[in-house]
Design a protein around this nucleic acid. Structure first.
Lengths: 195, 195
DNA sequence: ACGGTAACTGACCGATCGGTCAGAGGCTGT
DNA sequence: ACAGCCTCTGACCGATCGGTCAGTTACCGT
């Protein structure tokens, strides 16, 4: 992999764990084995590094949302979208974790505005106008919860590299189950026993 | 409220939205209408401010966990605990959001170590030794998702102050429903239709 | 062999960081 | 009136921040 891409990956990992403000160019340079000047040779600024780190993820989510027509009332369409959504989360867990948790507070950064707009757009697919409070909460928990648990499992995942592939499939399957359960609208939900 | 408490509340709000590293003492001082020196008069250091901000929440969660015996196999015990858990989240959403998302990356800070230890302790109550991957994910999503959605709804909550009390009850009820659904162990779950 | 370019570096800049310190102002009990 | 304490402040400190710039390598096609 090129130095350029290395820096982007390192920056993304550090931004996700230590925060954008909490990550210095010096630290990124040290991890990459370069000087701070070299980092600024490959990217014009720290903000450009942020854009390179999370931009592709936003592009992909935008593409997924654009490929969809209106709202997801059909059950099969919904399931297909949830699969796409989970795969997106698995592929871009660090990016999602980043702009979910640091989106507010990083205003005036163009790429962050795009990310926030994308989240809003995403939310409308699930809880369009008629959404109840509970439906709003369900969507938020699915999004924020999945982003959290996938970035928190990062350490475990690296440690359990030997199980890599099998474990990844298991996580994916479980995630689809849980997210489907969470996002299933009340109208499609079977009657529950009162507690 | 005293200046001392004001500073703690301001710091907590800023830490939660901008991150610990991203919040300067200067900014806290400006919001409080004081000088930076005054902030350091009330608290010995920035770290002391962090401890004052999230310490009480950790104490409360520790107390809740200590009041429980072993694992939560009984259904009623489980429900009672979930209610306590949700009320804890509602009362301390900013603190939880903080050490959920900034816990890693803020190592070597004593109060953060306590917070991380508490989260681990909390996790054992739900997915003790035999926990499947899906159960681990369910717990993580419930915790991280609830923390996210409650801190994200902060703006809305302030804007909808007129509905304050009624909306709060609705959120609490919905949260209990969702968290219960998420944390219900497989053994107690009714059969699901295969998708 | 030589010119150009991509990759990289150390020195340096102003700004801001967390933190120290001596002291000013006000309020209290004696 | 005085002493003591609580609150607060500006000046200052070394360190680090993001970023600029001139210059050094190494490799390339000609």
């Amino acid at each position: 992999m090129s130095t350029h891409d290395d820096l982007r990956d390192i920056a993304l990992a550090e931004f996700a764990v230590a925060g954008y403000a909490g990550t210095s160019l010096q630290r990124i340079a040290e991890i990459a084995g370069l000087s701070k000047s070299s980092v600024l040779y490959h990217y014009d600024s720290k903000e450009a590094l942020l854009q390179a780190a999370i931009g592709p993820a936003i592009d992909r989510m935008d593409a997924i949302l654009d490929s969809l027509g209106g709202s997801l009332t059909d059950r099969d369409d919904r399931h297909a979208f949830i699969v796409q959504f989970v795969d997106f989360l698995l592929a871009h867990r660090l990016e999602v974790h980043m702009f979910i948790n640091q989106g507010p507070g990083l205003e005036d950064v163009p790429v962050i505005d795009r990310a926030n707009a994308m989240v809003v757009k995403l939310a409308t697919f699930f809880s369009s106008s008629v959404g109840t409070v509970e439906d709003h909460l369900r969507f938020g928990i699915a999004l924020g919860g999945a982003a959290y648990v996938l970035s928190a499992k990062q350490d475990d995942a690296l440690r359990d590299q030997q199980f890599g592939e099998a474990a990844q499939i298991e996580v994916r399957t479980a995630l689809i189950t849980i997210v489907t359960e969470l996002l299933e609208p009340v109208s499609l939900r079977s009657a529950q026993a009162t507690t």
